[in-house]
Amino acid sequence: MKPAAALHPAEASHPIALRGQRLRVAYDGRLVFHEVDIAIPRGHLVALIGPNGSGKSSLLRVLAGVQKPASGVVDALSRVALIVPADAPPGDLTPTDLAGYACSVKRKWWQWSLPPHERRLIERALGRCRLEDRANEPVWRLSAGEVQRAWMAAALACSAETLLIDEPTTHLDLRFQMEILRTLRELAGCGLTIVMSLHDLTLAARFADSIALLAGGQLSCGAPQHILTEDSLARAFDVSVTTFPHPAQGYTICVPS
């Protein structure tokens, strides 16, 4: 496994949106990862993969500044928001409310009503996540995929430039998984930096610009075809994996042997 460095060797000169250096996380004396370096280029869609318990969620929390690492430094060179879509928002909220609550964190306490500029930001964010027609529906009436997109819209409404998303495709069927990943691909296409943790290696290869593989306390980063190799996946997941390129589009398909 090669040491972690700038995510994409060819794009090492890209401006960096978020950087973590020598990060170390341990729980109750159990080391999760250590000496992890990561630099996320602006506008990249990065898939963070790794076995269960390898520390993907912890790394995202540390990068978002929500959790303090045992050691190491995080440089947020852009506005960062962390989304944990598995958390269900209260059912009576609408996507507009959700985005309004997210924005209100930075609002002065006496500004009880939504300022016009925030309302415009929310409308725009809901539009970018294709939720404009569901903006005032309570969450309990939305599909799982729409709830995920409502979380993303909330982050966008906060003017986040970097989204860290923990398992955006959890509990979603294939159609909604594709819908979410296409939305994320579009958002990255217009300049947003996205780091998402995923379990589906083929979907990671299909949609991400770069892959970050966290396993055994070490992080390996690079282009999908460099990281998703049979050897590295077998070492990381302790299971034999066959990889081959998609016949038409060329991305790596990963199948357990």
Partner: peptide, 18 residues
């Protein structure tokens, strides 16, 4: 009040939004 509203989303989500 804004903190209370944000905390309705969960502590991690609220922290994730700043």
């Amino acid at each position: 009040v804004h903190a209370l509203n944000a905390l309705r989303l969960g502590t991690v989500a609220a922290a994730g939004f700043g």
